[in-house]
Each structure stands twice: as C-alpha cells, then as structure tokens.
C-alpha cells in the first residue's frame, strides 16, 4: 500500500491531529480532558515520526516513538496522581478552580 499513499497525506493528517489536540488543551478546562489532548498531540507526533521513518528507510524514528510511548505513560501516571492528590484538597477537575496562587 505504501506506493499508493503519499507521505504528505500522513504528514497533513498528523498536523491536523496535532492542531486538534493543541486546541483542546487551550479550550477545555477539565484537567482529565486536557491530559487526553496532550496524549493526542504526542500521538500525532508519533505518526509523523513513523511516516518519516518509513519513507526514509531509517529506524531512528521508530525508536523515538518507542521512547515517546514510555514517556507518555509516565506523564499520564504522574499527571493523574497529581490530580488525585489535588482532589483531596478540592473536589474539582476544573483548571480554573485551582486559583489559590495570586500575585
């Protein structure tokens, strides 16, 4: 199938997914959704890496994706632990409610 789908299709798709993820981070206030959007952004990057890796015949991109997956797993775990910890103080998942720090 490789010959049929040009590289630019994959790149454009991942640019769109990245933009949707970034938009979600900026628009939504629910921390869990924001974390999901960050994951979507990272996945979009993974797609770019693997597409390049395929078209350049190089494994570096795939190794990078491997690392990104490990990092993403750790990030989600830490982020959700932070959220659980915050919830002991304040029962909310809305970013705007976490506003005790003021100048």
């Amino acid at each position: 199938m490789i010959g049929e789908v040009p590289l630019s299709y994959y790149l454009l798709l991942s640019a769109i997914l990245f933009a949707i993820g970034a938009g979600g981070v900026l628009i939504r206030r629910n921390v869990i959704i924001v974390l999901m959007c960050v994951e979507m952004m990272m996945n979009a990057v993974n797609l770019t890496f693997i597409a390049f890796s395929r078209y350049l015949d190089s494994t570096t991109g795939q190794i990078f994706v491997f690392m990104i997956m490990a990092v993403a797993a750790v990030e989600v775990a830490v982020g959700l632990a932070l959220l659980v910890e915050l919830n002991r103080h304040k029962a909310s998942v809305n970013i705007n409610d976490f506003n005790s720090l003021k100048g």
């Binding site: 974390l35 990272m42 990030e75 304040k90 970013i95 506003n99 720090l101």
Partner: peptide, 19 residues
C-alpha cells in the same frame, strides 16, 4: 493546596511544551 496547584500547572504546561 498551593503546592499541588503549582505542580499541576507546571505539569500541564510542561507536557504541552514537550509535545
């Protein structure tokens, strides 16, 4: 609460920047 908030803000924006 302030410390947890600091961690959360740092985390959300840091992960965003990493992407």
């Amino acid at each position: 609460l302030g410390s947890g908030e600091a961690g959360m803000k740092y985390f959300v924006l840091g992960a965003f920047a990493s992407a």
